[in-house]
Design a protein around this nucleic acid. Structure first.
Lengths: 189, 189
DNA sequence: CCATGATAGTCATCTTTCTGACTACTCACA
DNA sequence: TGTGAGTAGTCAGAAAGATGACTATCATGG
C-alpha cells in the first residue's frame, strides 16, 4: 500500500483534481511512481473515505465539474508515520534489462532498436525534468533555492529523475555500441 | 507476466534449482528484477507445465534432493518473442523517494537517517556488483571481454546495476547534505 | 544432545496493480 | 454537422505480485 502515500505526497503541492493528479503522475511524480488514472481515482476515493484527504466540488462553466482534493491533518500524520517506517530498498523492474540479460540468446537487431528507442525516450524525459527544475527554482540558482526555497521535496526527487535518466541513456547507448561492434566482428569471421 | 521472462533469462546462465535461482535473484538479477523465493518456485512450476523449462531431479547425499531447470527450445522462442514485443518504459518505485517528495512536511531527522542507511546499502551493492563483474570477465579487461567474451548479457545488466547504485548513493548523500544545511540554517533563525 | 543455519521446497491466500470498456460535456475545425 | 481532442470521472474484473506458515534433511558448534 504505497500508491496511497505517493498520492498524498503529490497532493502536498496543492489542491488537485483526479485528472490533474493523473497529469502530475505523468511528469514529476513519474520519477518515483507510476500509475494509471483509474488507479488514482480509486485511491482518492479510498483516501477520502479514510479521512486522509478531503475534496470539494468545483463547478466550472464550459467544463465538467471537478473535485479538488487536499491532504487533511490525518493525512499528514499518515505520511509522517509512513516516513518513520522502514522503507524496503528500491527496486527497478525493467523489461528491457531482462532482454539485455538474454542478449546472447536473442536477436541483436531487435535489441539494438529497442535500446535506441529507449535512449531517445530518456533524452526526452531529461529535457522534461530539466524544464520542471527550472520552473520549480524560478530565477534562483540551484544552490540558493535548495538552501532557502520552500517545497524542495519535488525538486530533490526531480534531480534524481534527471540523474536516473541520464544514466539510463548513457547505458543504452553504450550497450548499443557494444552489441554493434560484436555484430560486425562476428560478421567478419 | 514478466517475472516469467526474468526467470527464463536468469536460467540462460545454466541449470539452476529453485533455491539457486532465488540466490541469483538476490544478486545479479536484483539489478532488474526482484522476487521472493516462493514466487520463483511457483513460476518454475508454471514454466515447466508450459514446456518452457525442463527440470531433472538430482539426488544428493548429505543434502535434500533438488530439481535443476534449464530453458527449452520453446523457452528460447518465448524469450525471442518477448524481446521482439515492445517494452514499456522502466519505472522506479521507491518508498524513499515518496518520503523525500514530502520532505517539506515530514520529520527531517528520520529522513536523514533513512537516506544515510540507503546510501550505505547502495555502497554495499556497488561492491557486490563490482565483484560480480570481475568474476564474469575473469582475467580479461572490460573492453576485451565485451568485444570477444561470450555471455555478455549478465555483464551489461550488471554494469547498469553499478551505475544505478552509484547514482543512488550520490543522490542520497547530496540530499542529506541539503537537508542538514537547511536544518542548521533554520536553527539559527 | 540440542539449537542454529543452510539447503530445498510447498501451499494457500491476500493485496496490489493493471486493463478495458464505459459516460458526459465542451471546444475547435473543417 | 459531425469528428476529434481535451477535460473529468466511473466500474468491474483480471493479472501479477507479496506474505505467512509450513515440512524436511544435514552439518556445525557448543
Amino acid at each position: 500500500m504505497a500508491l496511497r502515500h505517493a498520492v498524498l505526497a503529490a497532493l502536498l503541492d496543492g489542491e488537485l483534481s483526479g485528472y490533474q493528479l493523473a497529469k502530475a503522475f505523468d511528469v514529476g511524480v513519474a520519477n518515483f511512481w507510476y500509475a494509471q488514472p483509474q488507479q488514482l481515482y480509486a485511491e482518492l476515493t479510498r483516501l477520502e473515505q479514510q479521512g486522509l484527504v478531503a475534496g470539494r466540488e468545483v463547478v466550472q462553466e464550459s467544463r465538467p465539474t471537478k473535485r479538488l482534493f487536499h491532504v487533511t491533518d490525518a493525512g499528514l500524520a499518515e505520511l509522517e508515520a509512513f516516513t518513520a517506517a522502514s522503507a524496503k530498498p528500491a527496486f527497478v523492474r525493467d523489461d528491457l534489462m531482462v532482454k539485455v540479460q538474454a542478449a546472447d540468446s536473442v536477436d541483436t537487431a531487435t535489441l539494438i532498436d529497442q535500446l535506441t528507442e529507449r535512449a531517445e525516450i530518456a533524452r526526452a524525459r531529461i529535457e522534461l525534468f530539466e524544464a520542471l527544475l527550472r520552473r520549480l527554482r524560478g530565477d534562483r540558482g540551484e544552490e540558493d533555492f535548495l538552501r532557502h526555497g520552500h517545497r524542495i521535496g519535488p525538486y530533490l526527487t526531480c534531480l534524481r529523475g534527471v540523474a536516473f535518466e541520464q544514466e539510463n541513456r548513457d547505458w543504452c547507448l553504450r550497450t548499443v555500441a557494444v552489441l554493434e561492434e560484436r555484430r560486425h566482428t562476428r560478421a567478419r569471421n
